[in-house]
Simulated assay, not measured.
Amino acid sequence: MKMTSLIVFTALCLPALAHAQAPQMEKNISTAMAQAIIAGAVEECAKTSFRVSVVVVDKAGQLAAALRGDGTAPHTVEFARMKAYTARTRNQTSLEFAAATAAGDAAALRQIPGVIAIGGGVPIKAGTETIGAVGVSGAPGGDKDETCAKAGIAKVAAALN
C-alpha cells in the first residue's frame, strides 16, 4: 500500500517538476521601444518649450533607458526615474498614486523607498499587463509631465497591442 502511494505521488509530481524547469516567457520593454518612447515624450514637451528628462523602466522596475534633456535641472533625471518606478510598481500613473495616497492609511505607501507622489509617471501596458513605465520631469507641473509621457507611449501603441 505504501509503495503504491509512493508511485502515484511520484507520477503526479514529475510533470510539475518538469514544468517548473521550463524558462519563463514574459513581455518586456526593448531598447528600441524605450528609445521611441523617450523621443515621443521629448517631442511632445518641446511643442510647448518644456525642457524635460525622461526615464523608462522595464517590467522589473529597472532602468531601461534615460535621457537628461538640454537645460534641465540636475534633479530631473532622478525625479523621472522615481515617477516611472512608482507607475510600474503601483500599475497606475504617479498622479493617480498621489491622489490615492493623499490621506488616511494609504498615505503610508508614500514611505516605500523609491516611490514619489507627483505626476509624470505612466505605466506601459501590453494589453492589461504592465511591462514597464515612463517618467517625465521638468515641465511646470506633473500633469504636463504626464501628458508628455503619454505621448511617448502613443508612439509605440501599435506594438503594445
Rank of each mutant, 00 (worst) to 15 (best):
K59A: 15
N28G: 05
A133N: 11
F97P: 04
V8N: 04
F79L: 04
A65M: 07
V8F: 08
T130V: 14
M3L: 14
A32Q: 08
A87V: 01
M3C: 04
I118G: 05
T10L: 06
P113V: 05
I38M: 04
L63T: 06
A46I: 07
K150A: 08
A60R: 13
Y85H: 15
E44T: 10
Q62A: 09
G114T: 15
A18P: 05
N28L: 04
A99K: 07
A133T: 09
E44G: 12
A87K: 06
A11R: 07
V134I: 07
E146D: 13
I37T: 01
G132H: 05
Q24P: 05
A103W: 01
K150V: 08
A84D: 09
L63E: 06
Q24Y: 09
A151P: 08
L67T: 15
A157P: 02
A11V: 11
A87E: 10
A157N: 12
G127P: 00
L67I: 07
G69I: 02
I112Q: 14
R68G: 01
Q111H: 12
A41C: 10
A66R: 14
T4V: 10
E44L: 00
H75T: 14
A60W: 11
A99N: 08
L67F: 14
V115I: 15
Q21F: 05
